[in-house]
């Protein structure tokens, strides 16, 4: 009977090609978050609107007297609008520590000493946040559309509003990418998850408070470009084909959202390094 060698052995097994490490990082992050009970409660709450709207869809499809609550494009627009609170909560909860905790524990040099690029590392971390944010926006919205067809027993609404499929996808991706990269960029600026969360919450709330104040004083929403969330709402209205809620041209709002993503990526490129260079 052979004796198992308990000392160091050379590895002769298979190795995967470089380029897949981002998925390892993403899955590990997703598993770690799903292991937290509080986070599951947050996710559960985030789906509460879906449950309510699913009941309304059922009622409107099966009781002719409930025409008042019949679904429309606005229903889906409102769904995304109201989910933005949970987008904020999930972003702060799940995203604040994604890079900050790694920086605190000097984990970046562990990651980047492995055969993966900085872009892969960022993609993996973003993957965690994107997955959960899509889970509270795009996934329930799509399910609502499916439920509507199932409750109604026909595809009339879906066929008449087929553009909802790309609209919901594009808006969800825009919202999710903006939130994810902004949070990751702020997380990369600090070694404290709490401070990163504060920065994100502060940026969102501060710009909104400034906008609300200016709107209150001037009576016009032309300054909505100040607020990150107002810009997203404005672009969302255009994507869904409903009347834009603010006076800022939607092109400017889109430019700001895209600019935010670009600036966040630039910050990430600057901060995510295997070595801390102090000059």
């Amino acid at each position: 009977m052979g004796i198992h060698d308990q000392s160091y052995r050379r590895y002769v097994g298979p190795r995967t090609e470089p380029g897949a490490a981002w998925s390892v990082i993403a899955w590990s992050g997703i598993r770690a978050l799903l292991a937290r009970r509080i986070f599951l409660v947050v996710l559960l709450f985030a789906w509460s609107q879906f449950v309510v709207r699913a009941v309304l869809l059922y009622l409107s499809a099966n009781f002719p007297s409930m025409e008042l609550i019949a679904p429309s494009v606005q229903t889906f627009r409102d769904f995304f609008d109201q989910q933005s609170f949970f987008v904020f909560v999930v972003t702060v909860y799940a995203g604040a520590g994604l890079i900050a905790n790694d920086r605190r524990a000097n984990a970046l040099q562990i990651y980047l000493a492995k055969p993966l690029t900085r872009a892969e590392y960022v993609a993996g971390k973003a993957g965690v946040l994107v997955a959960f944010l899509l889970l509270v926006t795009w996934v329930p919205a799509m399910l609502l559309l499916v439920l509507q067809a199932m409750f109604a027993g026909n595809l009339t609404f879906v066929r008449e509003n087929l553009f909802l499929l790309p609209a919901m996808t594009v808006f969800a991706m825009l919202e999710v990418l903006a939130a994810s990269f902004a949070m990751l960029a702020l997380s990369s600026l600090s070694t404290s998850a709490r401070f990163a969360g504060m920065l994100y919450a502060g940026a969102i709330l501060f710009t909104t408070a400034i906008f609300q104040t200016v709107r209150g004083v001037t009576g016009s929403s032309a300054a909505s470009w100040i607020s990150l969330s107002a810009n997203l709402a404005q672009v969302g209205d255009v994507i869904f084909g409903v009347a834009p809620r603010h006076d800022t041209p939607w092109g400017i709002s889109l430019l700001i959202v895209v600019g935010l993503i670009g600036a966040s990526l630039a910050v990430l490129g600057w901060r995510v390094r295997g070595v801390e260079v102090v000059t």
Binding site: A21, I25, S28, N106, A107, Q109, I110, P115
Partner: peptide
Amino acid sequence: MPESDAHIPGLNAVSFVAYCGQLAGLP
């Protein structure tokens, strides 16, 4: 093996080392 204290937070030793193995291309 870096000079400074470095690890991936929130993991036990087996998970941490296995995770590093996966990052390096091991299934």
